[in-house]
Design a protein around this nucleic acid. Sequence first.
DNA 1: ATGGTTGTGTTACAA
Length: 257
Amino acid sequence: MALRVATWNVNSMKQRVGHLAKWARQAQPDVILLQELKCTEDGFPRMEVQAAGYQALVVGQKSYNGVAILSKGEIEPLATALPDAGDDEQARYVEARTMGLRVASIYLPNGNPTDGRKFPYKLSWMDRLRAHARELLASEEPIVLGGDYNCAPTDDDVYDPERLAADALCRPETRNHFRALLNLGVVEAWRALHTERHVYSYWDYGAAFRNDDGLRIDHLLLSPQAADRLQACDIDTTPRGWEKASDHTPVVCELAA
DNA sequence: ATGGTTGTGTTACAA
């Protein structure tokens, strides 16, 4: 029986707990990496998540950010932030061991607007992620680093590359940092198994989903030991079409047992 | 089209 690992930026856990439970019933993922909870650990709907069949490890903060790892198995917490946090208190990283994997839920900074403090913060956060990923890979474990990377890796992952060329999600600096992460030896699961262009995981609110004006910015990055077990990876657009949807939709991979 | 939308939490900010 294959192991299913999903990532989903839910854009408010409070607003989306119903969608999460409904989708989990249909898709039956074993592990779900969540981003943009927009709640504290105290505000996390633990009972509903438990009723859906999942244990949860939550790193939250008021109003913004927030990440969690949900699992049908036991969760051994390993980290609640990236190393070298300094004065960075934003809840964007959580890591654990579960179902025989090491997993992390990542909410990479958006970086817009690019002319202020946010873009340098994004790039330095990516540097910290890469340094930590290098350490993790030395363990030679099966690892899944999943989340909202706020990076469309190439123009093939963007509905209108020219219009978004200067956006922090597409800027060359962002893409160079993302490639540097891949160059450590991790595999981006969806692209490893698909050649289609212009397939997306995020669409802005308004008419974007209707018009398929999206970006592919939610990714599952696998260590070689996980990538050797990769059997499938798909983007499930169903929940994006539901009433009161998140602006992101889940990405799911299957790993051989 | 110089718009448009959502969520949090307060009338602004982040996305």
